[in-house]
Design a protein around this nucleic acid. Structure first.
Length: 288
DNA sequence: TGATATGTTATCTT
DNA sequence: CAAGATAACATATC
């Protein structure tokens, strides 16, 4: 779920809520979810919140860093002090495992307590996500494993041309390679390729310079749009902002999860295949 | 019941 | 050795 726009949405939320707050306690409910020394974190203030690719970076007053990766099903939910769940009349709405009422729940893996009484819940159904404590060196190591992000000045047609010329893998798989381009995941890769009119299965080294430039612009566009709509909460319903709201980008998808529907541009039915084990959607007329 | 799930990485295979 | 393909992680839903 969380790709660059979703993580960026959470980053902004954290900047609004937990900057300068002091961590008074950490409850680790699942050991696998928290790597590193909890005691190195307790008593520290959060000084800044940043993001590299899909990783959140919370800088601490001790100059150490808390890194958080949400992987597929991770959530960060903020609850201010004394916020009581509103008692609503019983409704028939089915309960989702990603509901943020009644936290902690069985999927809560860690809870940060701040000295003002507010809390930050790390929920993660599938337990792929993690929180780790690292020093500056560890942070640099993380940084080094990623290629440029769509908004970086290094994200040029020239860079992409060089990068793609070195591989014959399908362009979609190349887009998902975080060492080449950081932050793009399955949803936005599908959307960007549709917008650029390029077939996901086309070998990366067969793209023309014109196509690469189109694709570069399309990636920037869809990522921007994703951020504008606070990320996407697709059919699995997992993504939430830190206030617990769903994203709205899913209402603006043009191909993702639209198999069996008609192409918005030419009315032809959208094709679905699997690439690298991931759902891949495209229009066989508009993309080539 | 088997297929599906938006991420990454360890481990095979070519 | 390296690039590429695939399994694995853990859980739930349809």
């Amino acid at each position: 779920m969380p790709e660059l726009p979703e993580v960026e949405t959470i980053k902004k939320g954290l900047q609004k809520t937990i900057i300068n707050k002091r961590i008074s306690e950490i409850e680790v409910l699942k050991a696998k979810s928290f790597k590193g020394n909890q005691k190195a974190v307790i008593g520290n203030k959060i000084t800044t919140v940043d993001r590299i690719a899909k990783v959140l970076i919370l800088k601490l007053s001790s100059k150490k860093y808390l890194l958080i990766h949400l992987k597929m099903t991770g959530q960060l939910i903020y609850k201010s002090q004394g916020k009581k769940k509103k008692l609503k009349a019983k409704t028939k709405t089915k309960k989702s495992p990603y509901d943020i009422n009644g936290l902690p729940n069985k999927y809560s893996r860690a809870i940060f307590h701040f000295s003002d009484g507010s809390k930050l819940f790390f929920n993660d159904l599938r337990i792929f996500g993690w929180i780790k404590v690292v020093a500056k060196k560890g942070l640099l190591e993380i940084k080094n494993q990623f290629g440029p992000e769509p908004f970086d000045k290094e994200f040029t047609t020239k860079y992409l041309k060089e990068t793609f010329s070195k591989t014959s893998r399908a362009i979609k798989l190349a887009l998902l390679d975080q060492k080449k381009i950081a932050g793009v995941g399955n949803i936005y890769a599908n959307e960007a390729l549709f917008e650029a009119g390029i077939l996901p299965t086309k070998p990366a080294d067969k793209l023309t310079e014109l196509e690469i430039n189109k694709l570069r612009k399309a990636i920037i566009n869809v990522i921007k749009k994703g951020i504008k709509y606070s990320g996407s909460t697709a059919s699995d319903d997992a993504f939430r902002t830190i206030e617990g709201q769903r994203g709205r980008m899913q209402y603006h998808f043009k191909v993702y999860a639209r198999d069996k529907e008609k192409c918005l541009r030419c009315q032809k039915q959208i094709t679905r295949v699997k690439m690298g084990g991931r759902g891949t959607f495209y229009c066989s007329d508009c993309q080539n």
